[in-house]
């Protein structure tokens, strides 16, 4: 076990825990956008930054930083607060239409951005490039149907060539995990239309054997990603072959 302090309050957590988890264990709130328990740390949005005062001085992204013995974490140091505010102010100027971002920014006292508005072609932008959709599709589902396209300010998420993604199974995990509701999905008859991905999928093809069947909740997925429980399932036969228990074990014994 590792001992540290969060805002001067002592906390003890198991080794390998992130600072973010320790902060939350201490009952302190911190905003996050790109973090999800079921996925590898990513450290991109920079909302969760905290100061560590000892053993050395630094500003770190808490979601990706493993705890160390004797760490003194401060979530409200001037640097941490200003880093968070500026990140939200910039995200607000990137996605002025996003209610989620508006609310998160307001929580930090940011109600308007000094950094301008997006160009007309991106006026409706909701995506904050947290990468959760790309990562859940790849790391958790294994379909790897979507990815990042381009780099820098041009970076966006999408399917190869911006056309129907052959490997998309229509699970909807991406849309569910998206913190800003940027991914548009619609069920119409026996079709699921993933507008953002230019992809239409028939309901519901088993990813293991390919058989069509009606979607039903899946217990083990629900534990890991409660939000996609109703969206995705193997067909009953395949599910039997590969139980929830097996999967959970695999997840925790093999390095991500």
């Amino acid at each position: 076990m590792i001992n540290l302090t969060v805002n001067e309050q002592p906390v003890t957590v198991p080794e390998g825990t992130t600072i973010l988890q320790a902060v939350r264990a201490a009952g302190v709130e911190l905003p996050t956008l790109c973090f999800h328990e079921g996925l590898a740390p990513y450290g991109a949005c920079r909302l969760c930054m905290v100061s560590i005062a000892a053993p050395r001085h630094a500003l770190v992204a808490s979601c990706a930083y493993p705890v160390e013995e004797g760490l003194a974490v401060e979530t409200n140091s001037p640097e941490a607060v200003s880093a968070r505010r500026l990140a939200l102010e910039f995200l607000l100027s990137r996605c002025p239409q996003s209610e989620v971002i508006q609310e998160m920014a307001a929580q930090e006292g940011v109600t308007a951005s000094r950094f301008g508005t997006p160009p007309p072609e991106r006026a409706e932008e909701l995506c904050v490039l947290c990468g959760l959709c790309v990562r859940v599709c790849r790391e958790a589902i294994g379909a790897a149907a979507i990815g990042f396209i381009g780099r820098g300010m041009e970076r966006r998420v999408g399917t190869p060539f911006d056309i129907q993604a052959a490997t998309c199974i229509g699970c909807g995990a991406c849309a569910e995990i998206c913190p800003t509701k940027a991914i548009k999905i619609e069920d119409r008859g026996n079709k699921r239309i993933l507008h953002t991905w230019h992809t239409t999928v028939e309901l519901h093809k088993c990813p293991q054997c390919g058989k069509l069947f009606a979607p039903e909740p899946m217990a083990f997925l629900g534990e890991m990603f409660p939000e996609i429980e109703e969206q995705w399932a193997l067909c009953p036969e395949c599910r039997r072959a590969r139980t929830a228990q097996q999967w959970v074990e695999q997840r925790f014994t093999s390095p991500a």
């Binding site: 450290g43 991109a44 949005c45 920079r46 909302l47 880093a83 500026l86 990140a87 910039f90 995200l91 100027s93 990137r94 950094f115 301008g116 904050v128 490039l129 990468g131 990042f148 381009g150 780099r151 820098g152 300010m153 041009e154 970076r155």
Partner: peptide
Amino acid sequence: MAESCGKCTPCREGTHY
């Protein structure tokens, strides 16, 4: 700005601004 990978908010948005 042109070489930023675009992953994290400060570098992507900040260099642009």
